[in-house]
């Protein structure tokens, strides 16, 4: 047995143990800690699967931002009584057997997957020079399957509108309030020191994404986390949702993407195509604006609906 395999087996056992524990533990708050730890382990597994771009996203989004969101919710719900009865033993057994069957069936399919596996890697590599990019994943995201990325940026907007729509009518146009903790010296210090690092890292990830692992979503997620930290510590206030500049920031990424995509019909013969030779600068432009918009959207998703009545 090689050492690398030992690492993989160790990781597998650990991740399964944490997952079981997250589901089994009684207290919700503790369960969320389990989930954050689980996300960290997943990032390690993504590294082992030679997918650093995904590992970055998992670290930033899957474990980081999702963990924050769930931690905040669990903290607020600690006094909530759950009045729905837990399912009976029979249902548990039925569900358990069903899920075990699903797992077993899927496991059989995993073992039955064709070998050698079908892959698009050669096609991606063959066309990458046309995009001027060095990172094949960014090539897929911003060139070959740009529509998915455009829609993914757009998807954040209805989700955010959905969150905002949960405000009370009188609070519409007001600001969300993330600061639900008492002011604390240590937290304030953290919120003063960490964000400069984080902002550099976020911009670096976005900029680096064209050629190295990274990109708009990873960079945006880090920026969003730093913004949320500042808001949590009470060093700044979230802007009122009615602000015009905020709305512009939110849609800027998708709008720029859409405009460049539409320009492609005229200048490159297809929607979302880039004119030859201009692919890389256009992609970088899109990524930069997208990073900003994504950071704002993610930050506001964490901040929740407006709760302050506008003055």
């Amino acid at each position: 047995m090689t050492l690398a395999l030992a690492v993989d087996i160790g990781l597998t056992l650990l991740v399964l143990a944490v997952a079981c524990w997250t589901l089994a533990v009684r207290d919700t708050f503790t369960s969320v800690i389990g989930f954050v730890a689980y996300g960290l382990l997943l990032a390690l597994i993504w590294v082992r699967l030679a997918a650093p771009d995904v590992a970055l996203t998992e670290a930033a989004m899957g474990s980081g931002l999702t963990g924050l969101l769930l931690l905040g919710a669990a903290a607020r719900l600690q006094n909530a009584k759950n009045i729905s009865a837990p399912p009976g033993l029979a249902l548990r057994w039925v569900a358990g057997v069903l899920c075990a069957l699903v797992s077993a069936g899927l496991a059989a399919m995993v073992l039955l997957l064709p070998d050698p596996a079908p892959t698009l890697a050669p096609a991606v590599v063959a066309h990458l020079p046309a995009t001027g990019l060095g990172n094949p994943v960014t090539g897929v995201l911003l060139a070959y399957r740009a529509i998915d990325t455009l829609l993914e940026a757009v998807v954040l907007l209805p989700a955010l509108l959905g969150v905002w729509s949960l405000a009370a009518d009188r609070d519409w146009g007001g600001a969300p309030r993330l600061r639900y903790h008492r002011p604390d010296g240590a937290l304030t210090l953290l919120a003063q020191v960490l964000p400069p690092f984080g902002i550099i890292v976020g911009i670096y990830l976005c900029w680096n994404g064209a050629d190295q692992p990274g990109g708009a979503f990873q960079g945006g997620a880090v920026l969003a986390a730093m913004w949320a930290l500042i808001l949590t510590a009470g060093l700044a206030e979230a802007p009122p949702v009615s602000r015009r500049w905020l709305r512009w920031l939110l849609v800027a990424g998708s709008a720029v993407f859409l405009v460049i995509g539409l320009a492609g019909i005229g200048f490159a013969d297809a929607f979302l195509a880039y004119p030859a030779g201009y692919a890389k600068p256009l992609i970088l432009t899109i990524e930069l604006v997208l990073t900003l918009s994504i950071a704002v959207a993610l930050g506001l998703l964490i901040a929740g609906p407006p709760t302050r009545t506008p003055s």
């Binding site: 960290l40 670290a59 930033a60 474990s63 953290l190 890292v201 990873q218 880090v222 730093m226 930290l229």
Partner: peptide, 8 residues
């Protein structure tokens, strides 16, 4: 990234 977010 992990260090930044784990801290938070």
């Amino acid at each position: 990234v992990l260090a930044l977010l784990a801290a938070f």
